[in-house]
Amino acid sequence: MSGETPSERSGWRSEERAEPSAERVRSRARPEEMSCGASVRLSGLKLAFGDTDAAEIDLDVRAGEVIVLLGPSGCGKSTILRALAGLLEPVAGLAQVGESVVAGSAQPPSSSGVLARKRSPKNVGRTQCAMVFQDDALLPWRTARRNVEYALKLRGVPRGRRQPEAEQLLRQVGLDGFGDHLPGALSGGMRQRVQLARTLAAQPRVLLMDEPFGALDAQTRSEMQRLLCSVWQQHKTTILFVTHDVDEALLLADRVVLLTPRPARVRRIVEIESPRRPGAQFEPDFARRRYEILASLGDVPGAAHEEVSAS
């Protein structure tokens, strides 16, 4: 259990929900709101940005797992998420969410038509993977609530139910009472909360987060990390989180995937024992792991050379 988040304090407004009892139960009031995570499999996924190779990834993610992709800036981490979201067509390989292919050829990669396929996978992968972007992805002419309502509309929620559901989601991310504010009138942290609420409104089976807290100050960032943990506790979606911040990776992840510089390849996978334990960052174990990861990324003087050349 992480620290108290605003969403946990607002249980008193749950009259309209089916089960008014404990606060924890609130999010499970409607079974269809429980969007269970899906497993993700990237097999031989090869991505390019223009003519340069951006990433070559093999990775298996368990359902409901929090995976942090950690690598130097510009190494092509984000392209992996973009491929999963259906925004970038892979050069080769497959990305699967659950049983369905969201990017790449529907046939096994060995067959011929890998390059020939057009952009149809977005029809398959829709809303399986929704993405939280770094900043300014909200529609600035819509209020916080109407931004969330748009995602609900896209999910097919009938008009009359959108507003209460949007407010419920905003409450969950601690934005009770800010529904009528335009994004321009909200702080960076609040805007990211709205984005999180909007993305949850799509009930994705996989939540893709592309350096979502990168533009925030340290305090807001750690608040948001705690919020994300508590949201994950409620929804148990699979999360693929991209960052270049080692501390953030260690605080959030079940497993940290270290990536090489461009093109991004899996360099190492670090398992975190008892992940997301509050106060973990003050323990010696944390510092040791942090050092290891930094060394492996080549950030620690002395340790750098053999690691880099070993890759």
């Binding site: 259906g86 993977c129 929704a130 992805a137 529609l139 995602a151 896209l154 993305t199 409104a201 799509a202």
Partner: peptide, 9 residues
């Protein structure tokens, strides 16, 4: 904006 809308379906 468009990317976000597309990932939302």
């Amino acid at each position: 904006w468009e990317d976000a809308a597309r990932t939302l379906g």
